[in-house]
């Protein structure tokens, strides 16, 4: 789950101050494909109650482990629950929790990073030290510590992942703020009597926002993978919630008798992560060509 850590660090280094132009980003077909798939998932999550043919939690032991049929397009699981309905409702967990992690990390990381970069001096070195500690902590250890002490739940997993991820955003914002601080217009702003708060939260923020969005788009895939992974090993969302990682973890005991169970949840995860990576790649490519 930490496999992306290196990638993210590299990304943070490679991103400079940049601006978006949407028509350039969506020049490539595969970026458009990624965006379309994501929109489909968002649509599915929003209209889950309408789209799902059955109640995802409805246990129907008589119909357990059924193969695909018109009533149950993807079949039923070990408790007779409709797999398709569970997958559809699962998109809510995936998208909601990953967005929540991103919102928290950005809301904490970006102000801390801007403050650190803008203030400099002792504040900066203290904040950097704290950021370095959090960057060094593997997400599994943090998730384990939180789940082991506060209990394993979706909410605590969001807390654990936010604790790990905010530091990346703080670091990126700090680096970019340092670059912007050197620009001439910053001097002009100061000379014209702009207050520090106004400079940081209006002018600096406006300039680093595109880079932060780019990093966030690249991160969502990783975050979705981690949420499913932690739920799979029991440190995240708990059963019987229709979460994709839990569905996979339930399917393990039927690996000999009903391997079909593990097919669709995994495929769904691959699809959504791939889509986010395609979109993220598109945004990064746009950045590199400039």
């Amino acid at each position: 789950m930490d496999s992306m850590r290196q990638k993210r660090e590299k990304k943070a280094e490679s991103f400079g101050v940049q601006r978006f132009s949407w028509h350039v980003i969506f020049r490539k077909k595969r970026t458009i494909a990624g965006a379309v798939i994501i929109l489909c998932f968002v649509f599915t999550a929003l209209f889950a109650p309408v789209l799902a043919p059955h109640d995802p939690l409805l246990v129907d032991i008589v119909n357990k482990l059924q193969g695909p049929s018109p009533a149950y397009p993807f079949g039923t699981d070990q408790l007779g629950r409709c797999i398709l309905s569970r997958l559809i409702w699962g998109s809510r967990y995936s998208l909601f929790y990953s967005s929540l992690v991103l919102v928290i990390t950005v809301a904490v990381g970006v102000p801390v990073g801007m403050l650190s970069g803008y203030m400099g001096g002792k504040v900066d070195s203290l904040l950097m030290r704290i950021i370095d500690i959090f960057m060094a902590l593997p997400s599994f250890i943090v998730a384990l510590a939180i789940a082991g002490t506060l209990g394993a739940s979706g909410r605590n997993l969001v807390l654990a992942m936010s604790l790990v991820y905010w530091a990346d955003y703080a670091r990126l914002s700090r680096t970019l703020t340092l670059q912007i601080k050197e620009q001439n217009y910053m001097m002009a702003l100061k000379a014209s009597g702009c207050s520090g708060v106004s400079i940081v939260f209006r002018h600096v923020l406006k300039n680093i926002a595109p880079s932060v969005v780019a990093l966030a788009t690249m991160d969502i895939g990783t975050i979705i993978l981690s949420i499913a992974g932690f739920s799979f090993i029991g440190l995240g969302v708990q059963a019987p919630a229709p979460e994709w990682g839990i569905m996979l973890s339930d399917s393990k005991q039927f690996i000999q008798t009903c391997p079909r169970l593990m097919f669709f949840p995994g495929l769904t995860i691959v699809l959504i992560v791939l889509a986010f990576n395609l979109l993220g790649e598109g945004i990064q490519d746009e950045n590199e060509t400039e």
Binding site: G229, I233, L248, K252, I255, M262, G266, I269
Partner: peptide, 22 residues
């Protein structure tokens, strides 16, 4: 490379366990 970063290790593990184990 692209597929590898989008593939959940736990799903690949389960599939390989099925293939090689079962």
């Amino acid at each position: 490379s692209f597929l590898s970063v989008s593939m959940p290790a736990f799903w690949l593990g389960l599939m390989l366990l099925y293939l090689f184990g079962v």
